[in-house]
Write a protein that binds this DNA or RNA. Sequence first.
RNA 1: GGGCCGUUAGCUCAGCUGGCAGAGCACCUGACUUUUAAUCAGGGUGUCCAGGGUUCGAAUCCCUGACGGCCUACCA
Length: 490
Amino acid sequence: MGSRLDRVTEERLRTVACLREDGVDPFPHIFRPSCSTRAARELLEREGERTTVISIAGRVMAKRKMGKMAFLDVRDASGKLQVSLRKDLLGDKCYGVLRNIDIGDFVGVEGELFLTKTGEVTVEVASLTLLSKSLRPLPEKWHGLVDVETRYRQRYLDLISNEESRRTFTLRSRIISATRRFLDGEGYLEVDTPVLQSTAGGALARPFVTHHHTLDEDLYLRIALELPLKKLVVGGIDRVYELGRVFRNEGISVRHNPEFTLMECYCAYADYEDMMDLTERMFASVAGEVLGTTRVEFRGRIVELAPPWPRVSLREAIREACGVDFEDYPDAESLHERLLQEGVRIEGTPGRGRLIDELISTFVEPKLEQPTFLVDYPVEMSPFPKKKRGNDHLVERFEAFICGLEFANAFTELNDPVDQRQRLEKQLRDRSGDEEVQVADEDFLEAMEYGMPPTGGLGIGIDRLVMLLTGQDSIRDVILFPQLRGKRDD
RNA sequence: GGGCCGUUAGCUCAGCUGGCAGAGCACCUGACUUUUAAUCAGGGUGUCCAGGGUUCGAAUCCCUGACGGCCUACCA
């Protein structure tokens, strides 16, 4: 901390002390504005030249002092409004209060609204109240706060300085509530299931581990919502969803944060075709509601979200992209050899599913710019979908891609408990040696043994949906406090 | 985890081939009754990310580390 910062803070602490000596509370308890800055602006537009007395409150963002007259820009959550102070109207003492107001302070003002000769809606201040003293200087007004690390670590400064950041997080909130509204409208019931679980199942990912002292048990932070939600379908909640945080102890990147927001929904008496319809309609509905359009710009491209989205079989997509037909390679060894011919290198001894996954991400994903469903995955790749009608090697699963990024993953859910048990055991065998824990637990299998209706299930990465609809390329720009390395003091 | 790049005033950034640490905003002093990146005059307030090394001399060159960004790897 440099001495200039100290000087500003010392200066302002002196101001605080002076105010207290004069009997002014620099941090008063309450000021109730009569309207927001936006409402004030609209009021003047309706009433014309002059209004009755109103009051607003907000943070001082600019101070333009001209001897016997001054202007402040005051900002609240709805916007910004100029206020003017005139020595002749306020008197020496009241006008002198301005000396104690710094950029960054919160103030409340009362007065009539008028239009300046340059056409700016302005409050003609009759009284000015300091509401909270700021002790530190705000980031620079013109360039805003640019330093990426500071923007993430001190998000409040980013929000104060950068309009785009405020817009993004406002939209994030609207996107999430529009998603809820859409699902509620489709008859889904929102539920909350445990974040702390004794086994982290429903996906293949490394979990975070924690410990419960009283139970003296290790617990895992959930990596998916899948298993408890399907138990609820067994329990008769035919349409159920959860929109919440999941945690994966894996790499951090422009597309991955260790904790992220996932929406999963399950619909009894539906299959993956129905879930494709649902996905398309959800994206179009949320975009339409939040942005007023289904055309968005993402990663430098214009994307049209309106249904229908093309549905391409995974096998066809891979064959078209690189000429490899995975049906010609029934085992991992032969497929691995073919991949090596294609110049694809993978460490260790990957399974067939992993190899096909590699084909998708190397050759197919980058080509999928407009929204596309890849459908019918090999059975090795996922233990939860039902086998495809008429093809035992495939399962009824799809993933939705936009601009090379995965947004949705869904299946016709497997509801045969015997098949489910075998598939999970096989996955466990194939994965032994991986650090990931088991993908399902006995509780889940027992639930399924009581009978689960045919069900369609869908998962959507909400942070990525927000990226798409706000045009952000980094997940860190749609998460208020993204994960960063801890700061060390030494 | 690997590769590349970055870190200088509260903020945004210059600082060349090693030679007194710089600008704008902000801040302080003063002027100014319609400004809006207000203007004008004056004032520089610094652990140059940290620690070593080379050198007469290091913000600058070398090494190590911290943090960040991008790419890559794992994943959604």
